[in-house]
Amino acid sequence: MKWDLILSNSFYTAISANAVAYILVASGLNVHFGYTGLLNFGQAGFAAIGAYSLSIPISRYDWPWPLAMLLVVVASVVLALLLGIPTLRLRADYLAIVTIAVAEIIRLFMNSVRFTWLTGGNDGLQGFTRFMENINPFPDDGITLWAQKVDGYRLWLLVTGWILVALVSTGIWALMRSPWGRVLKSIREDEDAARSLGKNVFAYKMQSLIIGGFVGALGGMWLVLDKQSSQPQDFSTTFTFFAYTIIILGGIARAKGPVIGTMIFLFVIQFVDITLQQATRTTPTDPTPLLPEWIVDENNFSQVRFIVAGLALAVLVIVRPQGIFGDKREQAFDVR
């Protein structure tokens, strides 16, 4: 087993531009669910809107990138309004149903054969990252972090991504310690109480949906910038549930929760994955793998990683139910 490779690759995965995308998507969900109590099951939809609002105009219509980024803002706000206006006055479950449905509609639309001319369909879209490559100050062959090689473009995305994470997390932290954030938390606890004190609950929920949705869209954008390809299958409902796992791990309603949650989540998944990969590998010179084939072989380990990772995460949640940064005292009361 090449432990230095396994560990360095797992660490890199936990801080990569891909991790930045997960952090942003989860941070947005944290605003919705963690602070406001909004049951958004369609965060992947916001991420998809962010991804495609960048990739479609640039690859298909040669828009300058600032204009495409403006579209990311506009489109995520519009999506939040579309989701929020009909549902935010209703009981919480309506938002859950509508968000999960709309996120799936977006993904299916991006995947549909009929609109391949626009979205690229199943093959997705490429060639929208040139602007990012052009302003990349790092040499193309990049650097080596421990035993992990990182190319110049990924390094550039990593650095700018973490600057973005710092900005977004600080912004969310600043908002949540303000009286504005206090109103959001009061809505999470009991929206009728907030109303009885003169707070316009609908308006605050809408603002929360917009802010969290926009941050999620930034995450989607970073995801496809990293992959240099935007593909519909990256925005399935699983992505939303990964984001829930992340905020529960890191500690719900904590600004640094999504950061730490993502790092643990991605580290565990990647570590299990490549450890299994190594442990099941057979070579002509060494035909017997480390793990007996009746347990797992090199063809099915990629399924097993989620089982093992799931177990690892379950243990973590049992040992520390409030998450890494959560407040233990809050666990004493019913969530709802």
Binding site: G171, A174, L175, S178, P179, W180, G181, R182, V183, K185, S186, R188, E189, D190, D192, A193, A194, S196, L197, G198, K199, Q207, I211, E330, F333, D334
Partner: peptide, 29 residues
């Protein structure tokens, strides 16, 4: 309707009307 996962003092502060910081833009600063 106590707001369970907020402190007593935060419950109280929430009640005050006309709070400048309840506006999202001013809240940021």
């Amino acid at each position: 309707k106590a707001l369970s996962r907020m402190s007593v003092i935060e419950n109280m502060r929430l009640g005050a009307a006309h709070q400048k910081g309840e506006n999202i833009f001013r809240g940021l600063f």
